[in-house]
Design a protein around this nucleic acid. Structure first.
Length: 480
RNA sequence: GCCGGUAUCGUCUAGGGGUCAGGACACGUGGUUCUCAGCCAUGUAACCGGGGUUCGAAUCCCCGUACCGGUACCA
């Protein structure tokens, strides 16, 4: 949504890394975020790796900036040193909770004498810095999605703005950054809505004009609980791994919480960038529905470039053991023809191998062991087709294209006196050992082409139609 | 507990003082196709509860309930 707001209004989308929590901020997590954003197509105009004139864009590299501002606040009396230990604070919190009172910093160090502070500091005592929150005030702001939101300062304890180790707290660092980076719109999750009054107070202490705020609802899982690991994929990277197209995920996510108003559902990023409107964003939390994501994905799967689909599907075929990492050029060409043909009937790319099962595996005996297949195959009409088909294949060239298959099917039909469903269904049985599957126009040429490859091509061995027919006939005769 | 937010089909939503409350996904049924896809047709399904204002409330107001968030020297 941040990206869309920036695009829609000709703004600048900035990627800033908020890494003041050293535990959670690793090079790996930063890289993951950048990968996700890039994959989704949400390029940033300014920030990490992109540069810009209000950097640095990593909070851990802006520490001196924060320190200078803290001095200013301390001198002006808007902030003060706090010597309370985490243990003391925690005990106070527990006591308050037990007494059914709101847990709030009691202001223990609020009125410390400057001399005392000097002495304790000189003695090596560690101190955090707290913001002095004015009493009995209502702080309110006009949220771009929710309208006016107000908080009373009496429920806000003086927040720590700089920890005892000198690292600023999130609520403080973002204000300085947003002001210095001239941020106009802060669009974030509603988990930040109650942080906003604290931040507003920091703007006020500095005499700065705050940016516009917009708080978005969170996304819930199907059980209505916040999205978490047990709901399966919860990160962009996981959806990518499952074979969803980035444009589909972006499209779906935009629709989760926002609607164009006219019922349009398929909206690529470029269209979204023109039509998105923060004011039309919904106020309630959305439940993530993977079935709908899949539906959107299918739309994009149908129009994606063949080569791209082939490339994206390759890892799944490798995983299935049918392809090695570096297939030959002819195999790549084959994939570019076959993958798009199946991709249009699949929810996501990881389903492709399943759809291609009949190309790579064949077992006539096992097929005929299934009652319904056997019953169908032993019908005299079907046997006639089987015979004609295998005879025709014996001296036919490879059925490398759709037309060759159709011609042969026609000949076989004429010879066996069969057509339509009976004809094709029987051929399907012989070629795949199954009663359903891909359209034979597509499947048969795919099998034939694949059967011509050698192990050097980096693809598993695929039995051709002739071989399959022979095996089927043998298995059928074995039955009777 | 306290503070804040939210509430229309199972899900995403449109609408908004008078509508047959519309669409999409999913699901059911029928049709088409050599296909579990697609396409066509068709069906089931919703305004959280209670008060108030009003000729009239799903829509405005209040209360309640439920859910979500916050209540950190996390972000």
């Amino acid at each position: 949504f941040n990206w869309l707001v920036a695009r829609r209004h000709g703004g600048t989308f900035i990627l800033r890394v908020e890494d003041t929590d050293r535990e959670r901020s690793t090079a790996v997590s930063e890289e993951a975020i950048k990968d996700d954003l890039r994959w989704l197509g949400l390029a940033w105009d300014e920030g990490i790796d992109a540069g810009g004139d209000v950097g640095p864009y990593r909070q851990s590299e802006r520490l001196s900036l924060y320190a200078a501002h803290t001095d200013q606040l301390l001198r002006a009396g808007h902030a003060y040193r706090c010597f309370c230990t985490p243990e003391m604070l925690e005990a106070g919190r527990q006591a308050a909770l037990a007494a059914a009172r709101p847990p709030k910093y009691p202001g223990t160090c609020r009125g410390l004498l400057p001399l005392d502070v000097e002495q304790r500091l000189a003695a090596g005592e560690r101190a955090a810095v707290r913001l002095r929150v004015p009493a009995d005030r209502t702080v309110s702001f006009d949220d771009l999605v929710r309208g006016t939101v107000s908080f009373h300062t009496d429920v806000i304890g003086d927040p720590v703005i700089v920890r005892a180790d000198g690292i600023p707290a999130y609520n403080y660092a973002v204000v300085i950054d947003d002001a210095l980076m001239r941020i106009t719109h802060v669009v974030r999750g509603e988990d930040h809505i109650s942080n906003t009054p604290r931040q507003l107070l920091v703007y006020e202490a500095f005499g700065w004009t705050p940016p516009a705020f917009a708080h978005l609802s969170l996304v819930l899982g199907p059980d209505h609980a916040p999205l978490s690991k047990r709901h399966g994929a919860t990160s962009v990277a996981e959806f990518r791994a499952k074979g969803y197209l980035p444009e589909a995920l972006a499209n779906y996510l935009a629709l989760l919480g926002w609607s164009p108003g006219d019922g349009d559902e398929v909206l690529p990023l470029s269209t979204l960038a023109e039509r998105f409107d923060l004011g039309a964003v919904g106020h309630s939390a959305g439940v993530f529905d993977e079935a709908k994501l899949a539906w959107v994905n299918r739309h994009y799967l149908k129009t994606a470039a063949p080569g791209r689909l082939a490339d994206l599907a390759r890892p799944y075929l490798v995983q299935a053991g049918w392809l090695d990492g570096a297939p030959s050029l002819p195999v790549s060409a084959w994939l570019s023809a076959v993958v798009p043909a199946v991709a249009s009937s699949v929810d996501k790319l990881s389903d492709v191998p399943d759809r291609l099962m009949q190309v790579f595996t064949y077992d006539a005996r096992a097929a005929l062991a299934q009652e319904h297949i056997r019953a169908e195959a032993i019908q005299p009409e079907a046997r006639a087709v089987v015979r004609a088909w295998s005879r025709a294949l014996a001296d036919a060239p490879r059925l490398n294209d759709r037309q060759a298959f159709r011609d042969l099917a026609k000949r076989v039909g004429a010879e066996a006196g069969a057509k339509g469903k009976l004809l094709f269904h029987t051929i399907r049985l012989v070629c795949t050992g199954a009663a359903d599957g891909l359209e034979l126009d597509v499947l048969v040429p795919a099998i034939e082409q694949a059967s011509a490859f050698t192990p050097a091509d980096g693809i598993a061995r695929v039995p051709g139609c002739r071989e399959r027919a022979e095996e089927f006939v043998a298995a059928l005769e074995g039955l009777s």
